[in-house]
Design a protein around this nucleic acid. Structure first.
Lengths: 202, 202
DNA sequence: TGGAAACTTAACCGGACGGTCAACTAGAGG
DNA sequence: CCTCTAGTTGACCGTCCGGTTAAGTTTCCA
């Protein structure tokens, strides 16, 4: 075949799918190769290790999150705060679709990997941390817009973005634990409270 | 030795420690036995499988969370909403201590296991879900008290408890990913906003 | 005191793990 | 045309995995 083969692409795709539906540790090089229709030797021609493949898979997962969740949610056809609400609705929708395909709530692929690997694979942990910060920056930009247009006066966009992002991850964690995709949309309705003044406080 | 041995207790303790600092998959039966000073055959005398040991470890982890976080946080020496704030502070304190011991933020042991195993080990997933619901009930009870004493008028204690619990898990997830124990206390300061009316909304 | 039951010991099982290797094939470029 | 190299193949490596086994040893209780 030579250099026109798409074996690398198929390996990456198999890794992305398998790692998202299961986990880093639960998926072996063998299984990734089988799903990609590639021999083990070829795997190690394209990737020096399972870890390196996973690094690429993390980037690809991030690309898909942008494409399927963050991009649609934060498009400027709605006022900024409504985009935050749509962020959770969009996320809920993706979880529902994945559940139809797999029978299970899979949660956030990066959140899953973060908890599984943070204490074990420093390189992967760092990469995920970087992507988390990028997500927070996107949320913060939207909150800054909300401050500018007066819909969220006096809030701290950076602190708010951090809280909202953590909340999203937590909601996805619990939804996965309950295996209930609707939980995401349900809890998403509380999200905007996170960025306001502590209105319920004494 | 006979029936006065504490081998079972040592196995459980080793499992709790190792699973918390690493993970279910990353820790093998062999390593648990080594740390407990017990032979493999003895392991399988006390536990029919690694899964059963882990079930017991999950219950023990829950006991410790009650003892070290939830108990102290929700003791009635403070007004109810202040207990919620203390819940995050207490959690932050535990993460700081664990970091001193291990060099890493370990996060919520049950949250870690939940993400790692929810799609792989239905029995463990169910047990964790049950414990999560118990935690939410304890938070809800505190919120009901806050409604009764007028400090949080008109809120839904059950929905608020779910949101607060998910937020806690999310905060711990991100703190672990950043390897920053102070992140827990920092984001905890936003927690009470979650239960109020959406004061920042348009 | 004796036997049953609880517990311990260490060797052992098949299989999966991540990773390596040497031989081979196929295109591209000189 | 011939070589060079990217890519492919499948057997192979040592190690570790969860779990089993059979033969001990200790303790309890009759």
């Amino acid at each position: 075949m030579g250099r026109v083969s798409d074996a690398r692409k198929r390996l990456l795709e198999a890794a992305v799918d398998l790692i998202h539906t299961r986990s880093y540790t639960a998926v072996g090089v063998q299984e990734i190769c089988a799903r990609a229709g590639v021999q083990k030797g070829s795997f190690y021609h394209f990737f020096p290790s399972k870890r390196e493949l996973s690094l690429a898979a993390i980037d690809e997962l991030w690309r898909r999150i942008q494409e399927r969740v963050i991009g649609p949610a934060f498009s400027p056809d709605l006022p900024p705060l409504a985009r935050i609400e749509r962020f959770f609705e969009q996320s809920a929708q993706v979880q529902r679709e994945l559940m139809e395909q797999t029978g299970q709530v899979l949660g956030c692929p990066l959140g899953n990997l973060a908890l599984e690997l943070s204490t074990q694979e420093p390189i992967l942990r760092e990469r995920i941390e970087t992507l988390f910060r990028a997500a927070e920056r996107q949320i913060a930009a939207t909150l800054e817009e909300a401050v500018r247009d007066g819909s969220a006066p006096g809030i701290d966009p950076v602190a708010g973005a951090r809280a909202l992002f953590a909340y999203m991850e937590g909601v996805l964690l619990v939804a996965k634990t309950r295996n209930d995709p609707d939980y995401v949309a349900e809890l998403g309705r509380n999200a905007l409270g996170l960025i306001g003044a502590p209105c319920g406080a004494p």
